[in-house]
Simulated scan of single mutants.
Amino acid sequence: MTTELEHLAARLREFAQVREWEQFHTPKNLAMALAGEVGELVAEFQWLTAEESRSPGPDALARMRTELGDVTLYLIRLADVLGVDLMAAAEAKLDDNDRRYDADRYRGSARKAPRTT
């Protein structure tokens, strides 16, 4: 993980330890909490037009920022509990996508590439 992610992971680990919450921070519970927070983020966009979603007002943007923070913290905590390096996982996934989605073939297209594995 990068220094910033490592710092946040350490803060979250300490936050949970001080409150004796590690017993609740199972991968299953963290994944479910992450999904709930993603749902809250999605709800902020639910009835917006595409254009409104690109330029939310200050109140909506503040709520979105809060939900993005929640999603980020749960994702970092889940990765930490599982021992997954988020940056390495993201880099590997981007490398995979780069192989699967040839720029010339997929430029301007939203279609999915077939799975190779």
Score class of each variant (00 low, 15 high):
Glu22Phe: 12
Thr3Cys: 07
Val38Trp: 11
Asp102Thr: 12
Glu37Arg: 02
Arg54Tyr: 08
Met64Asn: 02
Ala50Glu: 11
Arg77Val: 01
Ala35Val: 11
Asp95Ser: 12
Gly83Lys: 10
Leu12Phe: 07
Asn29Leu: 08
Asp98Lys: 08
Val84Cys: 06
Leu5Asp: 09
Ala60Arg: 15
Val42Lys: 04
Met32Tyr: 03
Thr2Ile: 05
Ala33Gln: 13
Ala10Cys: 06
Ala35Asn: 00
Asp95Pro: 02
Glu4Cys: 03
Leu48Phe: 02
Lys93Gln: 13
Thr3Glu: 15
Glu22Asp: 15
Gly57Asp: 15
Leu68Trp: 10
Met1Arg: 03
Asn97Cys: 10
Ala33Thr: 05
Arg13Glu: 13
Ala79Leu: 06
Phe45Asn: 10
Glu67Ala: 05
Arg105Lys: 15
Ala103Glu: 09
Asp85His: 07
Ala50Met: 05
Gln23Asp: 11
Glu91Asp: 15
Arg63Pro: 02
Arg65Met: 07
Leu73Tyr: 01
Leu34His: 09
Val18Leu: 06
Thr26Asp: 13
Ala79Gly: 15
His25Ile: 01
Leu78Gly: 02
Arg65Asp: 04
Glu67Tyr: 01
Ala110Ser: 14
Glu44Arg: 01
Ala16Thr: 05
Met1Ser: 10
Leu73Ile: 00
Thr66Asn: 04
Lys93Val: 03
Ile76Leu: 02
Leu34Cys: 01
Lys28Asn: 03
Asn29Pro: 00
Thr49His: 06
Arg111Tyr: 08
Glu6Asn: 15
Glu40Val: 07
Ala103Phe: 05
Asp98Ile: 11
Leu75Asp: 00
Ser109Cys: 07
Thr2Pro: 05
Ala103Gly: 00
Ala90Ile: 04
Gly57Ala: 11
Gln23Glu: 11
Leu8Ala: 04
Ala33Pro: 09
Thr26Asn: 13
Asn29Thr: 00
Asn97Met: 13
Thr117His: 13
Ala60His: 05
